[in-house]
Write a protein that binds this DNA or RNA. Sequence first.
DNA 1: ACGCGCTCCGTAAACGTTTACGATACTATG
DNA 2: CATAGTATCGTAAACGTTTACGGAGCGCGT
Lengths: 356, 356
Amino acid sequence: MAHGGKPQPMKGIRQLADHLDISIGTVSRALNGKPDVNEETRKRVLAAAEQLGYVANQSGRSLRQGTTNVIGLMIQSSRETVENSDNFFLTVTGGLQSVFSRHNLDLIMLPCPNDEDPYEYLKRMVARRVVDAMIISETQRIDKRFDLLAKAKIPFAALGRSLSGAQHPWADLDFDGVANCAVDRLVAHGHRRIAISTPASDINLGFVFVEGYRRALERHGISYDPALVIRAKSSEQGGYQVADELLRVDDRPTAVILIYELMAIGLYRRMMETGIIPGRDIAVVGFREAPRAKFLQPPLTCFRTSLHDLGVELAEILLSSMPAYSHIYPKTRRQTIWPLELVPGESDAFQRTSIK
Amino acid sequence: MAHGGKPQPMKGIRQLADHLDISIGTVSRALNGKPDVNEETRKRVLAAAEQLGYVANQSGRSLRQGTTNVIGLMIQSSRETVENSDNFFLTVTGGLQSVFSRHNLDLIMLPCPNDEDPYEYLKRMVARRVVDAMIISETQRIDKRFDLLAKAKIPFAALGRSLSGAQHPWADLDFDGVANCAVDRLVAHGHRRIAISTPASDINLGFVFVEGYRRALERHGISYDPALVIRAKSSEQGGYQVADELLRVDDRPTAVILIYELMAIGLYRRMMETGIIPGRDIAVVGFREAPRAKFLQPPLTCFRTSLHDLGVELAEILLSSMPAYSHIYPKTRRQTIWPLELVPGESDAFQRTSIK
DNA sequence: ACGCGCTCCGTAAACGTTTACGATACTATG
DNA sequence: CATAGTATCGTAAACGTTTACGGAGCGCGT
């Protein structure tokens, strides 16, 4: 028994062991809940650790057991993306962390600089061995990153499905379901000529979205017209351009489905400028629901979901694919298509008087 | 000279050294740019590292030199906070990372669980020695976390000023300046009875905001009435409550300044419900500017700033206080009050017919 | 008395790096 | 030629932890 207080700021497990007159190995085993240690000495160790404020040095532990207790979240942090993505990422992240923190896992954000190739960036991060697993977002249609991670034997899950490696774990919003529902609704209102917006980049969600739209049209016996698929940025300016495109197309569409609700701002504005009333002359359906959607006049018909819970699901999918946790999260579903709920507004509520 | 390709996935610096027939020490020195190594062998080493895809293991390096190359960003990740904070954190984070990534520093988000005391949480994170420095957000009026970090000798910078440790590095939005400007504008329009909203928690920004408001009133010879300071959550519901409070106060105010623009949704709604027209019967000024502010009818008068650049500034302030980087970022300013620019809307544009 | 199994604990090796220190070869200087 | 100085490199210790291995003590059955 030495002195009682906090003499030094606690250098390491060695000091703790000396203070207890126990070997360092036993202390380690006691702290980590290993079986071969007397219950009473374990209590003593835990009490001393608590009192002296000892917490294991992460670097030492990582070096020894080759695991870092860190999950990486890769995002393409283009400034424009971030400023437009609203609270999307942070909300999903909150869900991720609510799961990870239960297992003392830290989440580290790995933003790929704009001027670097995402693949090379990820390769570097993987080589540094700073993460135990990865979450990949903004998945491309064919995404080499999956092969890289698989080859490096790093567990991962994707926020967004992809064509490459369909067997990989992922969670994704139900883009095709939403497109389906939107088309159904618009057709029920008498619309036959329905446009849709999709991102200009080769991010996969755009393809899924359009594919759902195409199939829904087919189901209603409406022929698919590529001219009605309008590529534009997912931003206010993008919405403005979509409106311009709409007006330019022959046989002007009577409805439009937006991939991202923020685009409605620009769309509405451009429509007003040209004397077209959204919700009366052209029906509008937006993709996500956000607080700001309530500002729109007329209120935007859109789709709501809990991104937080999507994050939870994604975290559990990831953990279920990690050997150390798969006993806690059994591999039931390894892919999830996350449902959204229709929030009827007034932007598509009018009954179209059929012209034919 | 061994074989040329990529035989193994590169185990460590040892393998690289063997492959080059050079000692491991020299390889390390070559890679780290140390002076006592022949320029030609350095080139050979770098080439081989590139070819074999060698990247130093972070754990080993951290353990040896006691530095992790990781900056922690602590946030209180209450689900409500996150969902309401819009893109605030992520945008600031983007600015932080644009600086950090230049120095190969990773940013790790450390979200304090709702049910844990932030101080204890930070203490644990500090003890694990997983970060070289910290960025503290949502600073309280008096915030023990600063003392903790100072005692642990961990460099830090705060997003938001505080009363405790005024000498610490921080960057903060110009809350008092905004309050000042808002009051000036409203007084110029003939308002004398001006209410203000402030968060219910003891986060410091609320105090700064109200203090600026109080001083501005004083300057105009208007007496400060505590009944006009309305505490409410920074959310849509909070705005709804603010409207209710406004109507309940004797000698009803003719103007209100909101701490957070999202509150305007609820405020407008409640006003409409009671037959009061925002921007005509009561003037409204909001704090930040966000894309959604453009939805409001009448458009909200508010204040714009670049949160990305604020993040850049904050990162530079932090680095300037870290010995390893202070030669790159000289300690010129260690505190910054970040300016905002008025975005005139129509929510406060009417000229108040003086009743007196 | 002996062996066996069990519980508990100490010892020491590893993990991959950086770096202080000394060794070597070579050059310059006296 | 002797010596000092310089450039370059190899050796080995150290960082803090986990864990394989073995040993001590004990109870128990033969």
